[in-house]
Simulated assay, not measured.
Amino acid sequence: MIRVLLADDEAVVRAGVRAILATAPDIEVVAEAADGRAAVDLARAHRPDVALLDIRMPVLDGLGAAAELRRAAPDVAVVILTTFSEDDYITAALDGGASGFLLKSGDPYELMAAVRAAHGGAAYLSPRIAHRVIQQVSGGRLSRRTAARERIAVLSPREREVLALVGAGLSNAEIGERLFLVEGTVKAYVSAVLNRLEVRNRVQAAVLAYEAGLIPPGTDY
């Protein structure tokens, strides 16, 4: 069972998200919070697998809560759920270590897909968000590709394979199946790749893989 912490300052939104997730047999909402500070405290107490955080909340916003969770409960995967899709929010969320970014106006089933992806060690972006990220990295593509290829030159051939599959949105288990590796070995490879590339999370690694030409344009995260 995937244990989820839900944080949003609007009770109606929390009720709606909880109702959607309740239809999934493998997902359980174990705690709810109306502000970011409470979300961090509840995460420490309940140790959920995934935290769904709204960006704009009182006391401590979602970005601040995500940053604190990264320090206090690094095993909790963070997915940002918001009505705002401005580029600054997207960049801040991904730079802050979020595993996913969802719009409240998106398909309800994206919630379940994002929770499962984050729990499996993969990244998930709403299609509209993924499109905007791709547009951002597509600007100045030649110079970006050169820089990205220089960055990934430090990786071994196997690490590049792992990076490409992370970029394609595969979970650790799926990468293991593809490369005939046990999941623990995949986790070690992913951790090594993130450290050597000096990126904070799988989304940033996926963007770098795209820039370097390891995955084709249009591939979903």
Results as ranks from 00 to 15, higher is better:
Asp8Arg: 14
Ala11Trp: 06
Val13Ile: 15
Val13Lys: 10
Gly16Cys: 06
Pro25Trp: 04
Ile27Asp: 06
Glu28Asn: 15
Val30Thr: 14
Glu32Asp: 12
Ala33Phe: 11
Ala33Val: 10
Gly36Ala: 05
Ala43Gly: 15
Ala43Pro: 04
Pro48Asp: 07
Pro48Phe: 09
Asp49Met: 03
Asp54Tyr: 05
Ile55Phe: 05
Met57Cys: 09
Gly64Trp: 11
Gly64Phe: 02
Ala67Trp: 01
Glu68Asn: 00
Val78Gly: 01
Val79Asp: 00
Thr82Ala: 10
Thr82Pro: 09
Thr82Asn: 06
Glu86Thr: 13
Ile90Ser: 00
Ala93Gln: 00
Ala93Gly: 09
Ser99His: 04
Phe101Ile: 02
Glu110Ala: 14
Met112Tyr: 00
Ala113Ser: 13
Ala113Gln: 13
Ala114Cys: 08
Ala118Tyr: 03
Gly120Cys: 08
Arg128Ser: 11
Ile129Lys: 03
Ala130Thr: 03
His131Gln: 12
Val133Tyr: 02
Ile134Tyr: 10
Ser138Gln: 13
Ala147Arg: 12
Pro157Asp: 09
Glu161Gln: 15
Glu161Ile: 05
Ser171Gln: 07
Asn172Leu: 12
Ala173Val: 15
Gly176Lys: 09
Gly176Gln: 08
Glu177Phe: 02
Glu177Pro: 00
Phe180Asn: 13
Glu183Pro: 01
Ala188His: 08
Ala188Lys: 14
Asn195Ala: 14
Leu197Val: 05
Leu197Lys: 10
Leu197Cys: 10
Val199Tyr: 07
Val199His: 01
Arg202Gln: 14
Val203Gln: 02
Ala205Tyr: 03
Leu214Pro: 03
Gly218Trp: 01
Thr219Cys: 14
Tyr221Glu: 06
